[in-house]
């Protein structure tokens, strides 16, 4: 707490408040708008922020319930939004779990064990993580196309191929976990070794339980990263029932078939759980991100 306070502090606080509220209006505008649009009647309806004649038709569509319009027509849901959400969650959970397993063991070796090429590996990982996966799409496409000819469940249009191709994103996490492991005192593991524990036992029973916070951060970060990933999924997945949410929702907004209201409901329905997870994990994420940020 600063002890020396300027005299006009009161006015400054109010000025800051007004600026903040104006800014928050700008920031929140898209969210409020989309919630409002999801309750409007029809796909081209315009109007005020609070809908004049609210309707649940878009929500019914998104939840897969056939909807009866005022003139008695039954409208069947166009897209399997809930299937997409499930696909997204399935792929994200599997990927995050695999990334967590691989990067934890990797980070343990980089933080604690001594072996040849360690520093070269760390440096090249740093450079490699900068290459965006979008540029390797041609290779991914060709690779899974050919692999699918031999192992069908790893071919194009399968979720397992998608999960595999996301595994390249683990380098950043290795750095994050490695940094955390290094902050834990080696003495704990050394005393375990004196008592006869193998390195695996020391890792499993001493280091892992101590690192639960960073593991949670890595899990949530990769979960969010995968659920929002769009380019790879759009190339590898083709069938409507196989799509993930990120690829699927785009289909609502084609110029020739512009379903703005249905999109709004789908966006709110699917964006909400992800946002809530993020806000709950936010406190840990902020510390994780800044720790990773400072260490580069």
């Amino acid at each position: 707490m600063a002890m020396v306070q300027p005299r006009n502090l009161h006015y400054r606080v109010w000025a800051a408040r007004i600026v903040m509220i104006a800014l928050l209006c700008l920031v929140m505008f898209p969210f409020l708008m989309i919630i409002s649009v999801s309750f409007r009647t029809g796909n081209f309806a315009t109007g005020s922020l609070i809908p004049e004649n609210p309707s649940l038709e878009h929500w019914a569509m998104v939840l897969g319930i056939p909807y009866e319009t005022a003139d008695g027509n039954i409208v069947e849901p166009t897209f399997p939004v809930l299937t997409w959400l499930w696909n997204s969650i399935k792929v994200s959970l599997t990927t995050s779990a695999l990334i967590l397993t691989l990067s934890t063991t990797g980070a343990y070796a980089f933080a604690r064990l001594r072996f040849r090429l360690k520093h070269h590996l760390l440096t090249s990982m740093m450079i490699l993580q900068m290459f965006p996966a979008v540029l390797a799409l041609v290779a991914f496409h060709a690779f899974f196309n050919k692999l699918g000819g031999v192992v069908p469940w790893l071919g194009l249009n399968t979720h397992s191929a998608l999960v595999m191709s996301y595994l390249g994103g683990l380098t950043m996490n290795i750095w994050l976990i490695k940094g955390y492991f290094e902050s834990i005192d080696v003495a704990l593991e050394e005393s375990a070794h004196i008592d006869g524990a193998t390195p695996w036992q020391a890792f499993r029973h001493i280091l892992l339980p101590l690192s639960v916070p960073i593991l949670a951060v890595v899990f949530v970060l990769s979960f969010i990263g995968v659920i929002g990933e769009y380019p790879i999924a759009s190339v590898l997945l083709q069938g409507v029932d196989k799509l993930t949410l990120a690829v699927g929702v785009k289909q609502f907004l084609y110029a020739q078939n512009y379903l703005w209201g249905d999109f709004a409901a789908a966006a709110v329905l699917t964006g909400m759980p992800i946002t809530v997870v993020f806000l709950i994990a936010q406190r840990y994420l902020v510390s994780g991100l800044t720790a990773g940020g400072v260490k580069g």
Binding site: T105, G106, Y108, F115, L121, A136, A139, I174
Partner: peptide
């Protein structure tokens, strides 16, 4: 032994970062 911990994650990096890179270059 030491590489047992690194190998799985290196495998991921080689298969899904390095290999696509080399393949793209050859295409």
């Amino acid at each position: 032994y030491c590489y047992r911990y690194v190998y799985p994650c290196l495998l991921g990096i080689i298969m899904f970062i390095v290999f696509p890179l080399v393949y793209t270059f050859s295409i």
